[in-house]
Nucleic acid binder design. Structure first.
Length: 415
RNA sequence: GGAGGAGUACCCAAGUGGCUCAAGGGGACGGUUUGCUAAACCGUUAGUGGGAGUAAUCCCAGCGUGGGUUCAAAUCCCACCUCCUCCGCCA
């Protein structure tokens, strides 16, 4: 959510920022008039309530003195009636205001390059040299099938398309990767490991920004008000929903392994082969809660922590800074990490590291107290994959394949 | 799933319709005393959200959450949530 005070007092700043990311700025005008209406009505009601409270006190005083309160009682009753008549309208304005505010995307950070699509993203740096093959490298799904590590047919029988069964060394490799990433981030990078629920309440999804706008991307339980998480970002960020943290507690750095569930609505025909785009996949997620003036520093650190996984695994990658048009709904700035896929002769996303500034913190009411005496303020949240495990396994298969179809695994991975 | 019980501030807790715009403790913080610590004593400690105002300040909301009754609700009514105890079921 965007700071309502800025919307109220400096709407032109927001309008300009929203235009940059190609968002619908017309909502802003609606919000501004709605907010003005709300304030007018709220003041009116508050004044009446103050009057009613006064009259009630007088009634109490008279009754204590055993005097007749009939006249004041009647006046008070009239005021109460009036309040009741106005309150419905106020509630309606309030919910309309909230609905509008919740679908406004975050504002891009000033440093983010203005652009329309991913074509205008900027490559920040590259690491590693794509290997030169003396044979035609196979795609990971071919390799996986040949090795008996990945079984797409049986997964389809059990669950349908976009699911996979890992088997034998394939399953062990997935497990080893999860373990490797968790160990790296906890031992070398100082993150605290958490293991959170994968089913969450709608409030949690609203806190991180998936709801109300992206419901069609989520799997929902039929009989309960619960959703499967599309990323551990949801459960981990919501760890501190409705909390006021002390400054000494910050920064908080969490690493969380979880399966992730995405309906992939609207992505028909994209990445239909292999394990690049699944309805269920494993991910190790990094989440940071930091003081506002340290969040951009933290974004760099977070990105480097994610990159370290690929470096240790010896997988070539590049870091891309997203332009305004390619930014996610909640993000102020994002770096994508893209790993090399020889069979596609292309870099593909394996991590997305974002600073949400106070956008999620405001929606989820996550605050901290800068000093003992000071009022609570919204902190900044960040997260990034560290990394998507399935895509990482796929990259390993492709980059480490041998001419005979076997894989020579990087030595950091004990199976 | 069934039967009971509970939810008040950092913690414990009083409070069954109006001098409660929530007692009293503990803790924490500040002070007095002190060579230092402790003790004792004095003081502060309802946070938070919202609104009006240049401001001092004032007003509204708030006792698990949401509704309702009433001139007036922590207190009465309804629904829900969470936790605890017991029973059943279960990895």
């Amino acid at each position: 959510m965007i700071d309502p005070k800025i919307i109220r007092h400096n709407p032109e700043i927001i309008k300009e920022a929203l235009m940059k990311r190609g968002a619908d700025a017309a909502i802003l005008d609606k919000i501004i008039t709605c907010d003005a209406d709300w304030r007018r009505k709220n003041l009116q009601i508050d004044t009446l309530k103050a009057r009613r409270n006064q009259l009630s006190d007088q009634v109490a005083q008279l009754k204590r003195d055993k005097q007749d309160a009939g006249e004041i009682l009647a006046a008070s009753r009239a005021v109460a009636e009036e309040i009741k008549g106005l309150e419905g309208g106020l509630a309606e304005l309030e919910s309309r205001l909230n609905d509008l505010a919740m679908i406004l995307p975050n504002l891009p950070h000033q440093s983010v390059k203005v652009g329309k699509t991913s074509a205008e993203n900027t490559v920040i740096r590259s690491w590693g040299e794509p290997r030169h093959f003396t044979f035609q490298p196979l795609p990971h799904d071919e390799l996986g099938k040949q090795l008996g590590w990945l079984d797409f047919d049986r997964a389809a029988k059990i669950s349908g398309s976009r699911f996979v069964v890992y088997k034998g060394a394939g399953a062990a490799l997935e497990r080893a990767l999860i373990n490797f990433m968790l160990n790296l981030h906890t031992r070398d990078h100082g993150y605290t490991e958490v293991l959170t629920p994968v089913m969450v309440k709608p409030e949690s999804l609203q806190g991180t920004g998936q709801l109300p706008k992206f419901e069609e991307e989520l799997f929902r339980c039929r009989d309960d008000e619960l959703y499967l998480i599309p990323t551990a970002e949801v459960s981990v960020t919501n760890l501190h929903r409705d909390e006021i943290l002390s400054r000494e507690q910050l920064p908080l750095n969490y690493v969380c392994f979880s399966p992730c569930f995405r309906r992939e609505a609207g992505s028909y025909g994209k990445d239909v082969k292999g394990i690049i785009r699944q309805h269920q996949f494993n991910k190790v997620e990094l989440v940071k809660f930091v003081e506002p003036d340290k969040s951009y520093e933290a974004l760099e650190a977070l990105t480097h922590d994610a990159e370290a996984v690929l470096q240790k695994l010896g997988l070539p990658y590049r870091v891309v800074e997203l332009c305004t048009g390619d930014l996610g709904f909640a993000a102020a700035k994002t770096y994508d990490i893209e790993v090399w896929f020889p069979s596609q002769n292309a870099y593909r996303e394996i991590s997305s590291c974002s600073n949400f500034e106070a956008f999620q913190a405001r929606r989820a009411a996550i605050r901290y107290r800068p000093n003992r005496e000071s009022k609570p303020e919204y902190l900044h949240t960040l997260n990034g994959s560290g990394l998507a495990v399935g895509r990482c396994l796929a990259a390993i298969l492709e980059n480490y394949q041998q001419a005979d179809g076997t894989i020579s695994l990087p030595e950091v991975l004990p199976l």
